[in-house]
Design a protein around this nucleic acid. Sequence first.
DNA 1: GCAATTGATGTAATAACATAACATCTGCAA
DNA 2: TTGCAGATGTTATGTTATTACATCAATTGC
Lengths: 132, 132
Amino acid sequence: MTTPQLTKNQSLVFDVLEKAEGPLSAYTILDKLRDHGFRAPLQVYRALEKLLEYGVVHRLESINSFVACAHPGDNCHSHGIVAFAICESCGQVMEFHDHEVDHRLMGWVRGQKFKPEKTTIEIRGLCEACAA
Amino acid sequence: MTTPQLTKNQSLVFDVLEKAEGPLSAYTILDKLRDHGFRAPLQVYRALEKLLEYGVVHRLESINSFVACAHPGDNCHSHGIVAFAICESCGQVMEFHDHEVDHRLMGWVRGQKFKPEKTTIEIRGLCEACAA
DNA sequence: GCAATTGATGTAATAACATAACATCTGCAA
DNA sequence: TTGCAGATGTTATGTTATTACATCAATTGC
């Protein structure tokens, strides 16, 4: 999927996520955009919905937060399943792909005749710096 | 970890989850236990916290719900990472393990010197019956 | 031009999920 | 019998997400 031109609100939300050090909750994004006229959560959620659809933002299910995709320029949908390692201390997120993991999961799924739509892989723990 | 004797509230919550067809939200559990004296969400969340700790219940992050572990008798912590396939139509959940997936993810993690605490793998989609 | 449609936006209200803070109770051990 | 730890009860509140409805702007077909 090619990413269409972002609307004003989508751009604002995306910029906030891009500039952030780590994942942000929808309400944190809202607060950061009050100066730009944002008043209600829906403005954020609507923008996020599109950004997720375009694959330029990911949702971290286990912490109810959102991050900009780590792959500059390129969009993520072509990479198969995206996995995340989330540091519970500093909040840093590492995004990665593993073809073999995809392969195994999709193999299992095929065996069950299950039709996958969206797969979440999130590893919570401590990053190297925080574990030290 | 061996599962200690459950307390009254823990048993009530666990029984509800065991008898359920699929995953339940904390508030759904609360409603099912009003007749047994439950009045507040915290009674459910406190029981769930322990049941999760004992490994007899799993939390599905992507749908904010809880299921009894599918492994009768045995507890889950010994099986490595647990993965779930969740049908978005009928709500049915399949729980499975894949050693190779564990191996790949833990390999990546080791390479990053990341210290994993809790890993989530959830595949949302349609089960065989619902996809037909 | 100007309806009709479509997609984006604004706003208020509410629903759904989760925790903080504090009080009480119960069983057990010093 | 006192003190402690763990479980429980209760109220209030915090956090995340959606419903419902109104408005606005750009595009299309007439």
